[in-house]
Amino acid sequence: MAGDMQSARGTSRLYQGKGPWLLLPAWAVIGIFLLLPVCLIVVYSFLTKEFHGGVIPEPSLAAYDQFFFDRGIFGDDPPRIEWNYIEIYLLSFLQAGLATLFCLVIGLPSAWYIATRPIRLRQMLILVITVPYWVNLLIRTISLKFLIRDEGPMNAFLQWTGLLDHPLHLVNTSYAVQLGLFYSYLPFMVLPIFASAERFDIALSEASADLYSTKWQTFRLITLPTIWPGVVAGSILVFVPSLGAFLAPNLLGGAKTYMIGSLIDEQFKGAAGNWPFGAAAATILMSVVLVVLILNARSQIKLKGAG
């Protein structure tokens, strides 16, 4: 019966009709202080910049023009494609993509390993993975930087063992940024894969093995497709924040490895700032993220349709 089924899912109609009122505070706070401001970014990206920060309320395409076109030093050359900013975006994509890949390579086996332990141990291991996530990201990034510095403990150790005779130069390279992003968001990969792996019915694997599959064939043909939604969710959770990351590129990458986060940040700091341009950069970032999320939602709907 409909009423019973509803309560089984932990939802009910006990406060029927009060829903909108109960949600109103959260709606209002998020709507006014996040949704509205996010829309305001788009508006600002089409306004004229004011020196020393801020905007003049005059419509202008200057920000996007600056982003996509190069018109020479005096602004009167015929427009050519400006690669500078597009390159920063592409590089950020690459960095975020590589970080996602590394997280997947380490995160997937780890998540599967945890999900297949007995229940008590499983809960403990997942806590072990979760704890670093809750530690201040700034402090984690500082710790990593301290560890991998040229004269840091890692290099000291490697040289002491004789594996290296001169320090491995990592800080201020794109490798350090990848490592930083990987380190920042690894738990985001493990948790959703774990969640879907935990629900996996091992009887399916047994049936597959019974039908002459090897372990790896079973994993590839049976396990992987069932935990795929977790893999996709994890990849998005790593990729999206990596793309707009600020701390890892800023503290570990130095001036050479500039990412979207630093580009936007700079536009709002000090007199050199350009608010409309920063807003345009943020709008473009948001659009990219939106596309990723929509693609994901679509593929999920497809999956549901197929299932």
Partner: peptide, 23 residues
């Protein structure tokens, strides 16, 4: 509503930061 409550998790932090500053 569910999407709205989760919105702070979906919007990249840097965008939230910029949006708040502008607002």
């Amino acid at each position: 509503s569910f999407g709205l409550i989760g919105l702070p998790l979906l919007v990249p932090e840097i965008v939230t930061a910029v949006a708040s500053l502008i607002f």
